[in-house]
């Protein structure tokens, strides 16, 4: 190849469009791209192909002829959904609970990560990390059972209150306590595990920045505030956007297991509503899918808004 030809190719590559760049990259690194195939197949099979089932939202489901053969019913399912006041209540409740989670629970793993990072003794740090992470592996059924044993009228906490001469508290049946209980149990169960991602971001911070700050006489608190937090901000942004994209999903497992008849009015989030409509009355998969599709659209909208907002504030975005 002549030097002119080489130069021409370089120029072409430099001015190539996105697709051309991808083709050039693919040709150059095809072995690496090959490794993507299993993940792509997984996504196609389990994330994209099932989306075809969303058409049920516009159909009257007939099991015998399947999703594709079932007759279309236009927006009939949506009309029924939007007429139901309990649907709107569940939407409101889901948003209320999740905005609370965003304010109260979202910072918790960041705080745990910062605290763990400040621990000096390596072994103690590992022990603490294990202690914080362990609850993640318990199912909500187990957690609910623990909470019942702790908080029931004959439970540990009320027994202690009684022994101290303090009136007992109806923790499990109080609508006022239900929402805080969701946050507390969620933090207890998930904060440790979720902090792992922040810890890994912290471990990637250039140590020179800490040394420079120390030389400048920065206190520990100042180092956290001026070095650690700014460095993990991109990670916080991405996770914040993703959490915002799930604002309409309130954790069915947790609420299903922790709620009861006394707290049902404050516990019927959208997932519980879908469950009730699907499995306590005659089966109507079209109706349930319509509710789920509505939820996904709201989640998608919130995700895009959060992404835009993050970028407008100079932060990192997920896409675009």
């Amino acid at each position: 190849m002549t030097s002119l030809a080489k130069e021409k190719k370089t120029v072409t590559a430099a001015h190539a469009t996105g697709m051309q760049k991808l083709a050039i990259n693919f040709k150059k690194y095809w072995q690496i791209y090959l490794l993507l195939i299993p993940a792509l197949v997984w996504y196609l099979l389990f994330a994209y192909y099932p989306m075809a089932g969303l058409q049920l939202a516009f159909k009257t489901y007939k099991a015998k002829i399947g999703i594709w053969g079932s007759p279309w019913c236009g927006f009939q399912n949506f009309e029924a959904v939007f007429r139901d006041m309990y649907f709107w209540r569940s939407v409101g409740r889901t948003l209320l609970i999740n905005v609370g989670r965003l304010v109260i629970n979202f910072p918790a793993p960041i705080l745990v990560a910062l605290m763990l990072n400040e621990l000096r003794v390596g072994r103690y740090k590992k022990v603490m990390q294990t202690v914080f992470t362990f609850p993640h592996f318990l199912s909500w059924v187990v957690v609910a059972s623990i909470m019942t044993n702790l908080l029931s009228i004959d439970g540990l906490v009320n027994s202690a209150l009684s022994a101290a001469g303090i009136p007992t508290i109806n923790f499990l049946g109080s609508e006022k306590i239900f929402q805080p209980m969701l946050y507390i149990t969620d933090i207890w169960k998930s904060a440790g595990y979720s902090s792992i991602i922040y810890l890994s971001a912290i471990s990637g911070i250039d140590q020179d920045q800490y040394e420079a700050a120390e030389i400048d006489g920065a206190t520990r608190w100042q180092r956290i505030w001026s070095v650690t937090l700014p460095n993990i901000l991109p990670t916080i942004s991405v996770l914040f956007i993703m959490t915002t994209g799930n604002l309409m999903t309130a954790g069915f497992d947790q609420i299903f297991n922790l709620s009861n008849a006394a707290t049902k009015n404050v516990a019927e989030v959208l997932d519980m509503y879908i469950y009730r409509i699907t499995f306590t009355a005659s089966t109507d998969f079209g109706f349930s899918t319509a509710v789920s599709l509505f939820r996904s659209i709201i989640n998608m909208t919130l995700l895009v808004i959060a992404n835009k907002g993050s970028k407008m504030m100079g932060g990192t975005g997920l896409f675009g």
């Binding site: 516009f58 159909k59 009257t60 007759p71 279309w72 019913c73 236009g74 927006f75 009939q76």
Partner: peptide, 10 residues
């Protein structure tokens, strides 16, 4: 469009 069209068929 598809849903509207088919609801008529139904």
């Amino acid at each position: 469009l598809a849903s509207c069209g088919n609801s008529g068929d139904t």
